[in-house]
Simulated assay, not measured.
Amino acid sequence: MFSIEHEFDSTVITLVDEGPPPLQEDVVINSFAECVTIEQLDPRTDRIQKITLSVGQLRDLAAALDLPEGVYQIRETDDQGS
């Protein structure tokens, strides 16, 4: 299950783990214009762990989810036919 909320400066997506235990803590994704943050409570330390991805890293992650094992580099192309 997930929720999407539009805030003033970001879009917040919360992923809730469902199904049989063991379940993971909720994952909160904040999408800003310049970066994306991913947060999750670490129950062992009772602290929020946070990862920040650049827009380029997020693009690479999205591409990597559908590719086989290997090393890749995404290159921007000029779609104007020049």
Rank of each mutant, 00 (worst) to 15 (best):
T37F: 02
E34T: 09
D9L: 15
K50I: 08
A33V: 15
P43W: 03
R75G: 07
Y72K: 15
I51N: 05
F2I: 04
A62G: 13
A63G: 04
V28P: 06
E25T: 07
D78P: 13
D79L: 07
D79Q: 01
V16T: 12
E5T: 00
Q80R: 13
S82V: 03
L15W: 06
E7R: 13
A64W: 13
D79R: 05
T52M: 10
V12E: 06
A62K: 11
D9W: 09
T14I: 04
V27P: 01
R44K: 13
N30F: 05
L53I: 02
P43V: 04
L67K: 15
E34F: 13
G19I: 01
D66G: 15
T45L: 07
L15S: 00
V36P: 03
A62M: 10
Y72S: 12
S82K: 13
L58H: 00
T52G: 05
E39K: 03
E5L: 06
Q73N: 10
R47P: 05
Q80S: 14
V71I: 09
M1A: 12
L53R: 12
I38H: 00
D46M: 13
Q24L: 07
D79Y: 04
Q80G: 08
R59N: 11
D79I: 06
P20V: 06
E69L: 11
G70W: 12
L41K: 08
D46K: 15
A62L: 03
D9E: 11
V12K: 02
P68V: 02
P68K: 08
D60Q: 13
D17E: 08
L15F: 08
Q24T: 01
A63C: 08
A63M: 04
M1L: 05
L58D: 04
V27Y: 01
T37N: 14
I51A: 07
I74R: 15
A63V: 03
S31F: 15
V36M: 02
E34V: 05
V28E: 10
Q24H: 07
A33C: 07
V12M: 01
T37V: 10
A62S: 07
K50Q: 12
Q73V: 10
I51M: 11
V27T: 12
D42N: 15
R75A: 05
L23S: 04
M1Q: 08
K50E: 15
P22V: 09
D9C: 08
P68R: 09
D46R: 11
V16R: 10
E69W: 03
Q49K: 11
G70M: 06
E25Q: 14
E69F: 12
E39Q: 05
L41A: 00
I13T: 04
D26H: 07
E76G: 12
A62P: 01
I48L: 06
V71L: 10
I13R: 00
T11P: 09
D79V: 04
N30S: 14
E34A: 08
A33I: 12
V28G: 00
T52P: 05
G70T: 13
I38S: 05
D17W: 06
A33N: 09
T11L: 04
F32N: 01
Y72I: 00
I29V: 13
S82Q: 04
T45A: 05
A62I: 10
G70P: 14
L58M: 14
V28S: 03
A62D: 06
Q57V: 05
L23W: 02
L61A: 15
P20C: 05
E76P: 07
I29W: 00
L41H: 00
T45Q: 09
L23G: 06
R75S: 10
L23F: 02
Q57G: 14
S82P: 00
N30R: 12
A33H: 11
T14S: 08
